[in-house]
Computed example of a mutant assay.
Amino acid sequence: MSLSSLLVRALSDPLNAVGSRRAIGYLGWNVPVELILAADAVPVQLGALPGCGTELADRFLENSFSAQSRIVAQRWLDGGLDALDAVIFSRSDDNAQRLYYYLCELQRVGVCKGPKPLLYDLARIQRGTSVAHTMESTRALAAALRVDESRLPAAMERVAVREKMLAELSKRRTADEVPLGSVAYRIERGARTDWSEEFDRSLQEWLSNCATGAPRKRVLLVGSAPADDRVHNAIEVDGTVVVGEINEASFLAPRAAVSGDSVETIARRYYDRTNAISTLLQSPADLVSAARALRADGVIVWMVATDTGLAWQAPRIERALREASLPTLMLTSKPQTLNADTLDQIAQFRRTLEVA
């Protein structure tokens, strides 16, 4: 099957790739997929689906929940996730953490059934006790998933191979001739959803033959992780190309030093990852350096209203980018769905880049 067909299958519904195998879902960006693979299960990242209503979820969730969380709740309540053995919720994702507690309570009072909810309690503070807590949480999660520790080295290698290809894709986007950003981001989303070896083969073939072009203008997209291709498609008009993203979804986990204990290595890797992206988003100087490395002609900072943690960083990010003379469009406190006003702002920003 071609990579394009695999992406359609995975992104139309991540459960399409499950088949009859044991499957474990997860919500959030910092969940150790290695543990799911070592538990002889199919990892399924849950998120937004095209055309999925949220009528049941709206009865229980406030407006502060993200669109992805609302859709996961909807599918949980209507039985659409019953095929999953369990679902892991990342504590480092505020929406995922809150949804975990809501669903546990709804199960307790008998409103719904569904898979077993599990919380991955990854600490975010940079101190020794946080590292120790994350290692303890990782061991607890491994036990809950019934991980076969003898399978962990192979699972870690499996993830390393996938991320090596994604790193190659990111490298291609720094060149003079680049693939469309919407295509690259679609591949990154699919790579978190379809963990089949067929996907690896198709991605490798695509990397060997991918179509590229010289963009007229290069844009860096910073902030919230888009749930689909619409933000990229709105930007990529008349030769403008998104050459990179800085958000929790697109950030590859750094390779932790391998210790004799595989669970400890995995725990350290995800602890380092969540702190690395937090540090980057809180360091405007590093964002400027990233934009320079990508030779960005402009930066769009897109933050959805439900991503409350990012809002505190917006003024510092804007000031640093403007002081660096990087044309910047601030789109903050936005709804998940692009509205006419946002589309007009993006179009006007593209026109200013053309005359710059």
Rank of each mutant, 00 (worst) to 15 (best):
E245L: 12
L37F: 04
R75F: 06
V301D: 00
L252H: 12
S283D: 15
W29L: 06
I187Q: 05
A132H: 10
I71G: 02
K113D: 11
P32H: 05
R21Q: 10
I88H: 02
R269H: 05
Q97I: 00
I266Y: 04
G53S: 14
E34T: 07
L310F: 08
S130D: 14
L49N: 03
L329K: 05
A123V: 08
E149A: 09
C52N: 01
L145Q: 05
W302F: 12
V241M: 08
G25T: 06
G28M: 06
S182L: 07
F89C: 10
V183C: 15
L84P: 13
Q45V: 05
E264P: 00
Y101P: 01
R322Q: 13
A175L: 05
L118V: 14
I346V: 11
P179K: 02
A311K: 09
M135I: 13
D58W: 03
D40V: 00
D148I: 06
T337W: 06
T138G: 09
V87I: 15
S170F: 02
T193H: 12
A293K: 00
S92F: 01
G47E: 13
T342L: 14
S289W: 05
C104D: 11
K116R: 14
E105I: 09
D297P: 04
F65Q: 02
W195S: 12
I246Y: 02
C210S: 13
G19I: 08
A38N: 07
L207G: 09
P153G: 05
L106I: 11
Y185D: 10
P50M: 12
P284L: 00
R230P: 00
T328R: 02
E264A: 13
R350Q: 10
A167R: 15
R70P: 03
D228N: 12
T54F: 00
V301M: 03
W195I: 10
L15A: 04
V219F: 03
Y120S: 06
V219W: 04
D121R: 07
S130A: 15
L329R: 06
H232K: 02
